[in-house]
Structure formats: C-alpha cells, structure tokens
Design a protein around this nucleic acid. Structure first.
Length: 586
RNA sequence: GCGCCUGUAGCUCAGCUGGAUAGAGCGCCGGACUUCGAAUCCGUAGGUCGCAGGUUCGAAUCCUGCCAGGCGUACCA
C-alpha cells in the first residue's frame, strides 16, 4: 500500500510539473511534505486521495479548479486507474488486480514474517516490565503491565529490533519486611503446602495481616524497619526467612506468567542491584553531585530543574527505591549496552522516572538520554476503584480463573465441548484473548475500566470475537481440503477479485506492515488491536455474504480461497503481537 | 499550592504528524439461519467533540484561559 502511494506521489509530481509549465508558472517547486496522499473517507471514492489545498497559492486558483485541470495530466499514461475529482480532492482508484496478485503472493511466501519491517533493524532495545514485589501476588494492574510489556516487545521485534525483555524483582525493602514480620509473628510454621494455597497468595495473606496488625500496634513500623536494617546487615535468620518467602512468591508468580503467556530474557533482583546503587551514590557524594545532611542522609538537589530535593539514602544508611533503580540501570547497561531502555511502569511513577533519569545524567552516564518511561494508566473495575489498602484489589489469578469459567459456560451452552477437543486448553486460550485484547484496546496512557463480562463476550469488539474469525476461516479451509479433488483443474486468477469488499480486504492486508511499523514507533499495541478488529469485521461480512466454496466458477472459488488464506495469515501474525492465541476450533 | 495526565453518543473506547457529512462496540429498537460454524451479519435512533477565546482557507486535533476528574508532590514502592 505504501509503495502504491509512493508510486502515485511520483506520478503526481510529474503531472504538477507539466501543469505548471503549461500554465506559465516559472518558480514551481513542490516538496514531498506538501504533497500528502491520504485515504478517502469512503471506499467508493477511491483508494488514494490527494488534497490540493497547498497548490492554491502556487497556481493562484482554487483547489477545486486545480483538481479539475490536473486530472487530465494525471490520466495520461495511467489508463488502468480511475481518476476522479471531488471538490478540492483528486481521488485515485487503482487497478486492484495487480495489487492483489502482489500482496497475496507476498503473504503466502513470507508466512508468519509478513508484516515484519526493518524500521528498527538491529536496534538493541531493552524492555522492562512486570516488576512484581515479593510480598503479594499479581493484581489486575500487573496484568495490564504484562500485556503492554509483552506486546510492545513483540511489536518492536517485528520491526527488526533486537529486544531483551527484563523483569526486575522487587525483593527487598520495607514492604517485603512487613510480610516477613507478620509471617514470623502469626505464621506458626505453616507453609503454602500445609495450607493448600498457591504460594504467592500464601505470602500475600501475611502482607494483609501486617496492615491489619499495624493499625492496632503502632510499634509495628519500627519493628519492620529494624528488620530491614538486619536484612541489609546480612543477619542469617532474617536472610533465611527472606529467601524462603521470596521463593514462595516468585514460584507462584511464575505460574501466573506461564498461564498468561508472559516470558522474560533476564531477571534482575533488587536485592543484588541495590548495592551498586549505594556505591554509585557514595561516588557521586564524593564528587559533589549529591550532598549529605547532618543526620547522615544523602540527597540530590533537583531544584535546578524545578523539581524537589530527593533522598537517596536514609539516615540509617539503608537504601530506597530510587537508590536501587540507579544501581539496576547501571548494571543493565553494563550487561547489555542497550540503545534504548523502555520502562513499562504505571503513570503514578512519572515523577520518579524524571528524577531517576536526571540523576543518572548528573552522574555522567550519557546513555541516560536513551531511557524512556512508557507509562500506563490505572485499571479499575466497573463497580469501583481498586485500592490495596481497602482490600478491593482484583487478584490476577482470580480474574483469569473467572474468565475461564465464563468461557467454559459459553462453550458448554453452545454444546461444543466435544468439538473443541481440549476444553481446558481452549477455555484458557479464550480467556487470554479476552484479557489481552481488552487491555490492549485502550491506549496505554489512559486510565481504563476493565469489564470482565464484556471482555469475554463472544460478540462485539472483543478478543474472542477475533479468535472466532480465525476459527471460522480454519473451518472453511478444512472443508476446502476435503473437497480439494473438485478443484484439480482450477487456476488462480486475480482478476476474479473484483467486488468492493474483496478490494477492501486486499487493501487491508496490504496495509498491515505499515500498521506494525506505526505501532512500533508509537509503542502502542492499540494500533494492532484496532487493525485486527477492522480486518475481522470486513472478513465476517465477506464470508456471510459470499458463498465461496460452492461457487460454480471453480477458478473464482480457488482465487477467493487464496484471499481467505492470506487473511488468516495476517490475522495470526497480528494475534501474536497482542497475545491472542490462535484456535483452529473454539 | 505546584507538576503531569485525562475530558468525544446512556456506558466502554477509536479518531495517525490539523483536512471531505466525527467513528466503533455494548445497550435500545427492527430485520436475516434448508447455506463454509447465527459465538454471526444487516439496518434505525443517539454527539453544542468539558466551556470560552485564539491561530488557520480549514481545528476533536495546535496555542491560551477557565471548569471537572485522576495521579504525583514520603527517610513507601
């Protein structure tokens, strides 16, 4: 589609030049910025639209007049295309046969690589996402984070980037000590096994317990702080407890990742990187980048960029979130010198990242300019806000299980449990499609409301609906295979793809690589979800209105099957980028 | 108070670097199964694009002010 536009841009420039010559304009010059080729608002108008407002000044005529006169020039040598004028626009309807042949052949030969671009070829991009705390299981907010992180990574890779997905396990700090302390006080030696609980949920129980307890017992905070000091000092008993409980949480969280199709290339642990951070801050202090208060705390003065003063080390010498993030960034760049590092982190931490990036710059790391905070908004349920303090957080595992249950109910109601094969696997795949699509349908920056019931619905703009299109095509292709013998004499003939809807479908397929590239440039999976819906919608209308296999014209049927196969390929490629599992049957 | 973000149909969301009558889904109402899976498709109704100015041939889109909401402004993460 893009080549097509470039091709016509050249034609237009040539036409404009001869038009200028014949109308006596000497100082004619048009650059490619002025000449913008668009897509008409309605397909009947054509495939390419050329607004001619810019030409009004050059030719001193109204755009509509120019359009009318320019038409003749453009038609010369381009007889296959239909050029029409509509007010200030010239619309071009291209010869679709040629495009269809080219695009469908390309899709068939490139297969699952179709849509990949080289726009970020070999760029080393690190993506940090998920970053759970080891004191509780993942909640709905993490699920959005994971969806975005995984999807953005796949999109970047599809654009040729060398992507490294990293997870920073937040396994140290005062909040970790809180669940440890509660377990020590109230755990009575129980384990996830003994209680029959998923291990991360088991730990989370004690984090909640701490918060209840600390309300009645004001000393709790001090005890937690003392535990943090003991931990940083390497106290053996505290360390042992810490290791035990971290294992529980991490094991449980990894199970959730496995269920939701999230994977990483490397794990970092704050318990390891915070020391680097501390050391760098001490170095910075010596060099006078930071300053120390009388109580021993170390600070960065950011008033020069209109930010506040920030603490980097507490008066008792223990480190903070910022401290370890400094260490983590440095450790990462040493391990794998990235050209860009994308932090997928909630928008509530914008200020934190502004500070972090600035401090790294002050410390003299030039790559600090390559850091980017991809921030996303909060997720709430229809019935209200998620607040961890009020215990209204939506647990990720529970939510996912609920989606699976709804998917199963739907399959059972349609009496398809037999036809589907592995029911457990299918319900999981449908649940995942529902979850990822719903989460990625909204641009990352915005807050959103997650409606589980709506997400799993099989009709409307949902993941399962898209999945259904893939399954329907698969079903059709199975039937085609069964009837293959009757097509033995048939030949593919692209001139057969002549209806308006086929034209639309061909163009939609053709534009896919551009969509992938835009999604990569904008770091926005929403481009892909939006595209998927448009393609699916077009296709569902097509197969509903057109009987393909029973066509008496076998050549036409065979050609249409080629188109349908291509659509399935594009769907699959796009599914992958937004975490929708492909199902042959559902 | 200050900083960042958001405000588009009853609800949930699109609308790319300003361009042709502002689009989907859900919900509402009304149609379409002897057909490749009706888990679908088609149609009707519904919008002062938060408000007011400004820039422009042209603004939902850019600028300014105001209003409303969210988030941040911790020796929490």
């Amino acid at each position: 589609m893009e080549e097509l536009k470039n091709y016509w841009a050249q034609k237009l420039l040539a036409s404009l030049e001869s038009y200028a010559e014949n109308t006596g304009i000497d100082d004619f010059s048009v650059n490619s910025l002025q000449l913008i080729l668009e897509t008409p608002p309605k397909p009947e108008l054509g495939d390419i639209a050329v607004p001619l407002f810019f030409a009004a000044k050059i030719f001193k005529k109204s755009p509509a007049v120019i359009a009318g006169e320019l038409k003749k020039y453009l038609e010369k040598g381009n007889e296959k295309a239909v050029i029409s004028v509509s007010g200030p626009y010239i619309n071009i309807k291209v010869d679709i046969t040629e495009t269809a042949a080219r695009v469908l052949k390309k899709i068939s030969s490139e297969g699952n690589r179709f849509g990949n671009t080289g726009s970020l070829k070999n760029r080393k991009i690190m993506v940090e996402f998920s970053c759970p705390n080891t004191n509780k299981p993942l909640h709905l907010g993490h699920l959005r984070n994971d969806s975005i992180g995984e999807s953005v990574s796949r999109i970047l890779a599809a654009n040729g980037a060398d992507v490294r997905k990293v997870n920073l396990i937040n396994d140290r700090g005062i909040h970790i000590c809180k669940s440890m302390l509660a377990y020590k006080k109230f755990g009575a030696g129980t384990t996830p096994e003994s209680e029959g609980m998923k291990s991360d949920h088991f730990v989370g129980k004690y984090y909640v317990r701490y918060n209840e307890w600390s309300k009645e017992y004001p000393e709790a905070e001090n005890e937690a702080r003392a535990m943090l000091r003991a931990w940083e000092a390497g106290d053996p008993e505290v360390t042992a407890l810490w290791q035990r409980m971290n294992r529980w949480t991490i094991d449980g969280i990894k199970q959730t990742y496995a269920n939701t199709g999230i994977q990483f290339d490397a794990f970092y642990f704050e318990s390891e990187t915070y020391k680097t951070g501390k050391a760098e801050i001490m170095k910075g202090l010596e060099r006078g980048v930071f300053y120390q208060e009388k109580d021993g705390s170390v600070w960065a003065d950011l008033t020069e960029i209109n930010l506040d003063k920030k603490v980097l080390l507490r008066s008792d010498g223990t480190s903070l979130y910022l401290t370890q993030d400094i260490g983590t960034a440095i450790a990462r760049h040493n391990d794998w010198p990235f050209e860009k590092l994308i932090y997928v982190v909630g928008s509530e931490q914008q200020y934190h990242f502004q500070v972090l990036f600035y401090i790294l710059k002050k410390l003299g790391f030039e790559w600090a300019n390559d850091l980017f905070h991809l921030s996303y908004g909060m997720v709430n349920l229809p019935d209200g806000k998620m607040k961890s303090r009020e215990g209204t957080v939506v647990d990720g595992d529970d939510l996912f299980a609920g989606l699976k249950k709804m998917a199963f109910a739907e399959i059972a109601e349609k009496e398809r449990t037999e036809k589907v094969g592995d029911v457990e696997k299918t319900t999981g795949a449908v649940a995942l499609a529902a979850l990822n699509y719903y989460l990625l349908q909204v641009s990352p920056g915005k807050d959103m409301i997650f409606n589980p019931k709506e997400s799993i619905s099989f009709n409307g703009n949902t993941g399962p609906y898209l999945q259904y299109m893939g399954a329907r095509i698969s079903s059709m292709l199975r039937k085609f295979d069964r009837e293959r013998a009757s097509f033995s004499d048939a030949e593919v003939d692209y001139t057969m793809l002549s209806t308006d809807i086929e034209r639309e479908l061909v163009k939609k397929c053709a534009v896919y690589p551009e969509v992938v590239r835009n999604a990569g440039n904008e770091l926005n999976p929403q481009f892909i979800t939006g595209y998927l819906y448009e393609l699916s919608k077009l296709f569902s209308r097509y197969y509903h209105d057109v009987q393909i296999l029973s066509d008496t014209d076998k050549n036409r049927a065979l050609t249409r099957i080629e188109l349908v196969k291509s659509i399935l390929q594009v769907l699959k490629n796009a599914y992958y980028l937004v975490g929708i599992p492909f199902l042959e049957r559902m």
